[in-house]
Design a binder for these strands. Structure first.
Length: 636
RNA sequence: GGGCGUGUAGUCUAGUCUGGAUAGGGCGCUUGCCUCCGGAGCAAGAUGUCCCAGGUUCGAAUCCUGGCACGCCCGCCA
């Protein structure tokens, strides 16, 4: 067996089919691969080839007889083939049928052997990625839209890791924004106060109040600007108040993250960037580039700008000069973002010291950038992924383009904007300023989901302990929220509706967890020791084969998702919904199997074989749920 | 003005990159299935101008051209 086919049962059969077809039709392997597909109805075959259409065009013949001819030749060459059973033509389609018992037994053995590593491949071994998400302002609780970002970012990490990538998870903390100045002003006015709410919620509400005052009162505006200036001085009272506030807020926000199983390795703080010398170092390098210049005259005199007019996609910009550093020398957001992107790739020497932030529930410490602390070496990265909303497509593109203008072509090419649309309500988006997020914070949403789950758990487990029921309800709630966010195609807006978000029937996480729980239940009732001499050829039922086929596809589904991370001009798409629908389909096929194929009541030999299949299913769906960050539940 | 995204049954949506067989699901609706491994389930059924108009092709939800509708983006702002 070829090495790269290890742990990927589907690929073994696929490669064999491709080889056979290429030989028989005398066509290149790569060409054949373009014309391989899975028939819409499994009755037609397990795998199909449409090469006849292609050859018909080349040879100016009708596709039907070409398919016929290939099929009749194929019949000869598969006579002694252990993997392929038969081949049929249906019109121009060449349909092949796998040897079912071979397919089922290879799949089940492979899964049971690799166990919790099933699905993992080493296709991208040696590659390192830095991923930034979700970069929520430390001034409010996460709302369900922020959580979409976080869940996408976290799942992307899991998926990359499953294919061999090494991943470093980064969060960005903007502790110098206007919102922070406003809140600092308010806190200093109020003095010390006992806070009973979760701190991020407390700040979020406070912020709505401040905003009202800010908009109405010029005097307040002036005072807040003064606070903003003082925040730059790390020894000021304002700065000390702010740092304390931001730290408490991020810790509160992370309580939400931890509930959802989301952890990080590092945080980059804006204040650390501002005082680290990173910006000056970046500026120096930028000015060496031909298209980064300091303007001497015109409206933007004194500014350091990037010239973008020679680039096609920006030719319609109102002004070809993108300001990186203002005439007073301060950096714009774009300027800072370019510098940060340079840092991420290690173009600039790391100017940061690192400080312990806190120990996460997964046991790993998270560190923040600072001006004092220890040195760290994050190392080189092959790719940088920024998980940011679709409205930022243009600014993100600018950053990468400017990186290219600086001469870092490769880094520019390997910069990825993982784009997703926002979550909103029926007629309004979420706004921190207007407070429209109130009632839709992730904490509130998860809690509501938990209440509903709890009702159901109570009904089904009246004799279980409070601890058990609470823990299961929590797992169902967080799983449901993650699935809800991942199952929507990222380039589609989500309109948040309680009825849909909390619908636990059908295409939703509890169904997946439930199928795992049922499989677990069956296995609990059989003797613990693994059977060794099991006759897998007994598994001939349609439902058993369909389930095996789905199980066999798992590693390939992950690989296809990673291959699908293709960069286009305005972002890199991450098809999170491909994996959720795979997982749902897998669970559906188990439910059908469960319904039609009794396991414990089957005759001895058949029973043993079915138990092995259930074992393989349980491993696969558990691994898939872990990949999606959905808690695996034994009983519910 | 230019750019990006979306448009698929009552409703929410997959599929569009890479054209291929009868457009898959979920919710809701109709009807069956618990002396039988857990019914958050299974089986059967009804519901479609795949936004519109052209074009390319043996073949278009998918590609091209031109429209329409909705959302977003195009600051020395943050």
């Amino acid at each position: 067996m070829k090495q790269d086919s290890l742990g990927n049962p589907w690929k073994v059969f696929y490669e064999e089919v491709v080889r056979l077809l290429a030989d028989t039709a005398s066509v290149e392997i790569a060409t054949i691969k373009r014309f391989i597909e899975v028939p819409p109805d499994p009755k037609l075959g397990d795998i199909a080839c449409t090469i006849a259409f292609h050859l018909a065009k080349e040879q100016k013949m009708k596709p039907f007889p070409i398919a016929e001819e290939i099929v009749s030749k194929l019949r000869e060459s598969i006579k002694d083939n252990p993997l392929i059973d038969r081949v049929e033509s249906k019109g121009p389609y060449i349909n092949l049928f796998f040897n079912r018992t071979e397919y089922v037994s290879r799949t089940v053995h492979e899964v049971i052997q690799t166990n919790d590593r099933y699905g993992l491949t080493d296709e991208y071994k040696g590659k390192r990625a830095l991923i930034e998400f979700p970069a929520v302002n430390p001034s409010k609780p996460w709302h369900i839209g922020h959580t979409r970002n976080a869940v996408l970012g976290d799942t992307l990490c899991n998926v990359l890791q499953a294919t061999g990538w090494e991943v470093i998870k980064l969060d960005y903390i903007n502790d110098l924004g206007l919102q922070i100045a406003q809140l600092t002003w308010k806190l200093m006015q109020m003095g010390e106060e006992e806070v009973e709410d979760k701190y991020d919620h407390y700040l979020g509400h406070l912020y709505v109040d401040v905003q009202t005052a800010f908009e109405k009162d010029e005097k307040v505006k002036a005072e807040i600007r003064e606070v903003a200036r003082k925040l730059e001085d790390l020894d000021s009272d304002e700065s000390r108040t702010s740092i304390k506030m931001v730290t408490a807020c991020v810790k509160a926000q992370y309580q939400t993250a931890y509930r959802l199983g989301i952890f990080h390795d590092y945080q980059v703080w804006e204040s650390a960037i501002a005082h680290s010398g990173l910006l000056d170092a970046a500026k120096k390098i930028m000015l060496r580039a031909e298209n980064i210049i300091k303007l001497e005259e015109g409206e933007k005199a004194g500014c350091i700008v990037a010239r973008l007019d020679m680039l096609d996609e920006f030719k319609d910009m109102q002004d070809p000069y993108k300001v990186l550093f203002r005439s007073d020398g301060t950096r714009t957001y774009t300027g800072a973002d370019v510098a940060l992107q340079m840092w991420k790739f290690g173009i600039l020497d790391d100017p940061f010291k690192y400080q312990f932030f806190e120990t996460q529930p997964n046991g790993k410490d998270i560190f923040r950038t600072s001006l004092s602390g220890e040195d760290r070496n994050l190392g080189k990265f092959d790719a940088v992924f920024n998980v940011i909303g679709a409205p930022q497509a243009h600014p993100q593109r600018l950053i990468y383009v400017i990186l290219g203008l600086l001469g870092y072509k490769e880094q520019s090419e390997n910069s990825h904007h993982i784009s997703y649309e926002f979550v909103g309500l029926e007629d309004v988006g979420f706004s921190g300023r207007k407070g429209t997020w109130i009632g839709y914070s992730s904490d509130v949403v998860i809690d509501r989901a938990k209440e509903l789950a709890r009702e159901e758990v109570d009904k089904r487990n009246p004799d279980e302990s409070e601890t058990f029921r609470d823990s299961v309800a929590e797992k169902i709630a967080t799983g449901a929220v993650r699935y809800f966010l991942l199952n929507a195609s990222p380039d589609r807006k989500i309109t948040f509706r309680w009825k849909e978000a909390l619908d636990f029937n059908g295409d939703a996480a509890p169904y997946l967890q439930y199928s795992h729980a049922r499989a677990t239940r069956i296995l609990e009732k059989v003797s613990k020791n693994c059977q060794t001499d099991v006759d897998m050829t007994l598994l001939t039922h349609e439902a058993e084969f369909a389930l095996s086929k789905a199980i066999a596809r798992f590693p390939e589904e992950i690989l296809e998702t990673v291959r699908g991370l293709q960069k286009s001009t305005w972002g890199t798409g991450f098809q999170s919904n491909k994996l959720t629908s795979y997982c749902y389909n897998l669970a559906t096929l188990f439910s059908k199997f469960y319904d039609t194929c009794p396991v414990l009541k089957a005759d001895n030999e058949l029973k043993s074989a079915r138990i092995e299949l259930v074992r393989a299913f349980k491993i696969t769906i558990a691994n898939c749920l872990k990949l999606l960050g959905i808690p695996v539940v034994e009983r519910m």
